[in-house]
Amino acid sequence: MLYRQLSLQVNESTQLAWWRTADFKDLLFIAYGLLVLLAVFASYLLGVMHWLPQDPDEIDMGAIMAGPLSSGHLLGTDFLGRDILTRLVLGIQAYFLPGLLAIGIALGLGAVAGVLAGYRGGRAAAVVLYGSNLLDSFPRLILVLLVIAAFKADIYYVMVVVGITAAPLVASLVKGKVHALQQKNFIESAVALGIPASTIIFKHILWYNCRSLLLIQATLGMAEAILIETSLSYLGFGVQEPTPSWGNMVQAGANYLLQGNFWPSTAPALAILATVLGFYLLGDGLNNILERRR
């Protein structure tokens, strides 16, 4: 406790480099998370360029529901004999860009609301608090289904909802950060130096002091986006067969799973698990290293 108070006063430049002070566990988490991030990004590019191991719709009659590591199919085949690895790679397209949209909205809206509440205080803070409580009242999936029923089953509409409903958390974190800066008389000094408000907000508050927080929220946001997209395509509102998505692959394989053929449904489920876990752990490791130090 005392150490933390003291370290607050230590100048940033005198601190040890972050990888010297970091826990080994956190570095491991970050390494795994970066690996997942790289794999997702590379696979997304492969899918866009159509550099795929096999044709995603090609039916291999000789190898229906083949297990992993079978000849010609690294991750086996599904119930129609289609290559699972290829379909997993293509399934990333279902959430990657929409997820980025959700992250952008959550960070943008959250940062604006958080700065407004923390910097202006008073009535602005009350309005932001009201809006946050309002958005937090809705179960996210129910709100998403309402938008789907009222507008259309478009993943970008869905991700706008996901982004807006994720904003309150970002706003409260940014607001907390601004309050911490105010307690250190940081903002007061900046104002006294005659620095314009826009520079204080964008450069000193958001860029210097909130960027690691926003980065962490972005990784967690991608995990949320994957969970929502796979849930929706499992429920039948996302990408439709034969276009693959991890959620509809689990769904399509479910009947075979109940008959004891685990693999076609379990492979995409493991992909979801490994990827979401990767983004969570990346966020957790970054949080421990970048935020706890302060």
Binding site: L227, G247, V250, L257, L258, S265, A269, L281, D284
Partner: peptide
Amino acid sequence: AYLASALPLFWLGYVLIY
């Protein structure tokens, strides 16, 4: 905590039914 969050609920449901 993270495993419980990351595991797809629907897949786990089918495994439990099986």
